[in-house]
Structure formats: C-alpha cells, structure tokens
Design a protein around this nucleic acid. Sequence first.
DNA 1: CGGATCATTGATGCTGTTCAACAGATGTGG
DNA 2: CCACATCTGTTGAACAGCATCAATGATCCG
Lengths: 211, 211
Amino acid sequence: MPAKIVRAQIPRAHSIVTCQRGEQIYAEGDATDKCFQVSAGAVRVSRVFANGGRQVVSFHLAGEMFGFEAGPQHRFFAEAIAETRMAVFERGPVQQHLPELLALAVDGMERAQEHLVVIGRQSAIERVALFLTDLSNRLGGTRQLTLAMSRQDIADYLALTIETVSRAITELRERSVIALRHARIVYIMNPDALRSLCGDAASPSEPARAG
Amino acid sequence: MPAKIVRAQIPRAHSIVTCQRGEQIYAEGDATDKCFQVSAGAVRVSRVFANGGRQVVSFHLAGEMFGFEAGPQHRFFAEAIAETRMAVFERGPVQQHLPELLALAVDGMERAQEHLVVIGRQSAIERVALFLTDLSNRLGGTRQLTLAMSRQDIADYLALTIETVSRAITELRERSVIALRHARIVYIMNPDALRSLCGDAASPSEPARAG
DNA sequence: CGGATCATTGATGCTGTTCAACAGATGTGG
DNA sequence: CCACATCTGTTGAACAGCATCAATGATCCG
C-alpha cells in the first residue's frame, strides 16, 4: 500500500471546522462542493448497503485530503471517527488548481487499486498485517500505533468480520509480532516479521518504502 | 458499476498500433510515457504475483482509454486479450490537457472504488452477474455478449477461481437468466433477473443507468 | 458500582478453493 | 476427412478459511 496520501497545499482554505466522534461530514447524494484536509483526528469514507453492511473505502489521518469526487454528488459517506479538525476547501476556487486536483484523483485511484489487490488476493492475517504496516507508515513510521478506528471499522475496511480481525490480531500477538497495551494501542515488536506476513500484494513494485 | 469509461477525445494521437492476442502493451516498471485508446479489440490491466497469482484491475473495450498512471513507472501490466488496435498518446503533449487527464484519473478512481466494493462484499454469483451486466452496458446495451476474455481472466478480475466462475455461469444458465451459444458467446435472456442478482453493491446511488 | 459499548474467544456451518477427471473446441498432419 | 494433440471450459468430491451464532471478558463513563 502506498504510504503517500496527497498532502498538497491548496491555498485558500475557506474555513476550519471541528467534528465530534461519529459526526457525519457528508452523505451519499450530497453535493460535491467541497473537499477537506484533516489537521487532527481521523475520517472514515464508506458505503452503506440496504442490508446494513458497509464497505470502508478509505481512512484519512492528519495531513491527508479527501472528499474529492467526479460527479455532482458524493457516492460515499464520510464520518469523523474521532474528534477531528479539518480545513475546508470550496470547490469553485479549487478548480483553478487542476494539477493539485489531478494529484488527488490519481492518488485516490492508486490507493483504491492497491486496496483492490489486497482484498482480492490476501488472506485475513495478511490483510491485517498490511493494514498495520500501512498505518505505521502513514503515521511517520512509529512503532506504537494508536488506532482511531474500531474493530468494526477495520473489518469493514478489510472486507472481513470483526471476529476475524480480532483473531488475526490475537495471532499476531501470540507470535510476538505485536503487543497490545490496549485494544486500541498496538506496539509493533517485530516490524520485519510483520512485513513478511503481508504477502505478495504489498506493492511489489515499490522498494519497501521507509516510513 | 459505472458504465461510463472516459472516451474523451484528446487530440494529437501520435500513432495507431495493432497488437496480437496475448501481446504485452506495457509492463510493470515501464515508463508511463504514453496512454492509449482502444479502437478495436480488448485490453487487460493486471498485476502478477511471485506465486503466479494475478489480479486483473480492469478490462478496456473499444472506445475506452487506459494506461494513465501517476508515477514515472507503470504499476501494472497491460496486455491485449484479442487482436487490438489502439491510438497512442504521448505523455508530453497530453499533459497540456489537464481537464481530460483529470477526467481519466477520476474515472479510474471511481471504477476502482466500485470494483473494491464488489470484491469486498458480493458473493460469487453476484460478482458474475454484475460483470455480465457491466459488460453489456459498456457494449452499448446489447443482450448478446461476445466475451473477449477467458474464464481465467474473468476469475482474476472478480477475485474468484476459474471453477467458481464456471459454476456461477452454469447456475445462471440453469436458471434461464442467460444462454450460451458458445463458452464465449453469452445471450442475456432475462436482463431484469440478471440485474436483480447483482445485489446491493450495484451503484445504489445511480438510478439504474441505461446502457 | 452498574450499564453500555467494544473486543475476545469458542463451536459450528457455509461458501468458495483445491485437486482431479472429463468434455468440447480448435488445430495439425497424415 | 479423420486421428491425435492441445487448449479451454465444465463438473465432481473433499477440504479450508472465514462467517455466523453465542457467550464471556474488558473498558468506559455515568
């Protein structure tokens, strides 16, 4: 998974907003008139199905942009999964910054394609190992991760069930690859072992990006 | 799945090339100095793993563009799966057409995200039904589909095995939803039934786009 | 402390994979 | 034109991994 998520500096942030944990940022069908940059907290972008199921398409952490879509209406939901502060960019002014928009779209495409490969071809434990590795990279390479998201969020992101995620984490713990100070605080004891558990799909083209 | 695949007319096609069935168009690691528009035939974009596994990210039919990627090197393989004629666009000149590139990137992102949802949340028969529906739409809504791709290609696209794809097709046939004149020639006998088999993930936000 | 939410663990079953054999189509040479 | 080889697709049986159902444990917050 690419650690890079576009952090382009688009000028003219119109405002800064703060969302509480669980608060909706936009809904499916809402106008795509803004995009956002997280300054603190974390955001979940997902689709919800009639039967209650959910597919999380992406998480966005501090520094990362999201909310850019092609059509006039959003095709996904975005919610804060922790108390989150964001810069808001109005679409009108932003459209004069085509190169930045292009970078955003391309990054979104690449991440979706990598995620596709993971969900299509990796086992449960590989997905979880990859998830933790990616998160560690995006947090700047820390070995201690504080998960902003619940097990249910992780499950919906990795296309698994909450129980399977839990069992995978337990197995990583039993193998001493990670340790849990808390259900939401993961310490990566053996980064090499974790990486080797990620399997083939971990960006074979990329030379083990340092994070 | 969105039927729309960008067919933007970018001027200055530098050349027209023809590829034989099975011929490689670009490889992982190749320079991303061109992009392509299929004029006849079909193209498969995929990633190949060390263990021989493969994930097909997209197919591209007549009129559709592909090959646009962010970095300097391709992250996937592109191959012709039938005799294919394509217009080639050099990257340099094309970069003056930012709006068109943006449309390409956004379309790629959306398709990858929709594909993600399908692979993450749909059963085998739902995936196959959706695949056939999407293909029919992209071919202009024909009820008779000539599949350019093999069962293996379909399996790698839908993240299933060839056997499971075969069984799903057999079941659709036994339910009289489709008929096979030939393994590669599918006739959609009951489009409504086929659509209803696609399940939730079939673009809930889109009002059943006609194709 | 007590209730609610979140996470872990266990037992069982289903879906899709794997391994294996067969069938149909395509192509080649005698 | 038919025998033979090859490639592609279908079908069957057994298995594995993950989901499901159910219960227990941990954490948070009043």
